[in-house]
């Protein structure tokens, strides 16, 4: 009961935040934090809970982003209408690539996900219909409200917060039920899980399908907000790595870990980009590398675990 109140208060505070901060730059960073939290939380379902570390989730993000711009360019629909198409393509990709790669364990699975996503990126780079290397643009000026083109970033912020709340609600329900325990068991040991009657490959697929759905939705929201997608910005390996790092930083396999990670990493990244201007993209790699080193060295469980450890210490103290 008390936990529910704390969570409700947290979301109210998050919803009120852009009203308290007047600067449009910070409001925009806030929206980007929530968008990153959506994709990292979606990644967390398969990568965190089930422990299948995908480093190729950009393929679903890219499918969502391209779908939004495709329905605009080909059919003249508002970009958000691309969401179902992006999800359908992502579910298909997840099933086709997931079933054979789930046989692989550990690093081999991760490498297979990198390889398939890079393959898709190269295909798209050479595919005229999808704009090839140049990419696709969204509507330059909004034709109606349905185009969701706003100068005020707070509107995106609240839309993203709603989607994040839905995703975290679903994750919470899953975590408490059989599926949550089955995924954590699979993470612990495939072999032991199977011996207890856990249909391992089926549950890995469920987790991947749910994960791909929300990653694709995040991609569509990105396409709607930014109005542009090219192979590097939505299908690049950095897009996949970012989801992994954000989740790992906050705490993979925990409900709020990815949100915590996004709150820390995204502003850090925006600050380095602002400080170094256009030449700052290389700095992003440096920041990611540093974060990986720090997590691996000091807190393999992420910041959520650190929080739990501190809470235990506080409780133990008189």
């Amino acid at each position: 009961m008390r936990a529910a109140l704390v969570v409700a208060a947290l979301f109210l505070a998050l919803a009120a935040w852009p009203l308290l901060v007047g600067d449009v730059f910070y409001q925009r960073v806030g929206a980007l934090v929530l968008l990153a939290a959506i994709s990292a939380s979606a990644w967390n379902l398969i990568g965190g809970y089930a422990g299948q570390v995908s480093v190729g989730h950009a393929v679903y993000f890219g499918a969502g982003a391209y779908a939004s711009l495709m329905v605009y360019n080909q059919l003249g629909w508002p970009p958000i209408a691309g969401a179902p198409l992006g999800i359908a393509v992502s579910l298909l990709l997840a099933t086709v690539t997931g079933l054979p790669t789930f046989r692989l364990r550990g690093h081999y699975f991760s490498m297979a996900t990198i390889a398939t996503t890079e393959l898709v990126r190269l295909l798209v780079t050479n595919w005229e219909l999808l704009g090839a290397a140049v990419g696709l643009m969204g509507p330059a000026v909004p034709r109606s409200v349905a185009d969701l083109q706003f100068n005020d970033p707070r509107i995106y912020y609240w839309i993203f917060l709603g989607v994040l709340a839905l995703l975290l609600g679903l994750t919470w329900a899953m975590q408490r039920g059989r599926m949550g325990y089955y995924l954590r068991a699979i993470n612990g040991s495939d072999r032991a899980a199977r011996s207890l009657g856990v249909p391992v490959r089926r549950f890995k697929l469920y987790a991947l399908l749910l994960s791909a759905t929300f990653t694709s939705l995040a991609g569509t929201l990105y396409g709607v907000m930014v109005g542009f997608a090219d192979p590097d910005s939505v299908l690049g390996v950095l897009v996949s790595v970012k989801m992994v790092i954000i989740a790992a930083l906050g705490g993979a396999g925990t409900l709020f870990g990815p949100l915590i990670g996004a709150v820390i990493l995204v502003p850090l990244e925006e600050a380095t980009n602002a400080a170094f201007g256009g030449s700052g993209t290389g700095i992003t790699y440096v920041v990611y590398g540093a974060v990986i080193l720090l997590i691996a060295r000091f807190r393999p469980g992420g910041l959520a675990e650190l929080g739990h450890a501190l809470a235990r210490r506080v409780r133990r103290a008189p």
Binding site: Y181, R184, A185, G188, S189, R191, A192, A193, S195, L196
Partner: peptide, 13 residues
Amino acid sequence: ARSFQVPVTFEDM
């Protein structure tokens, strides 16, 4: 049902 020669428990649970 079975047990394993070298126990395989779910360590983090």
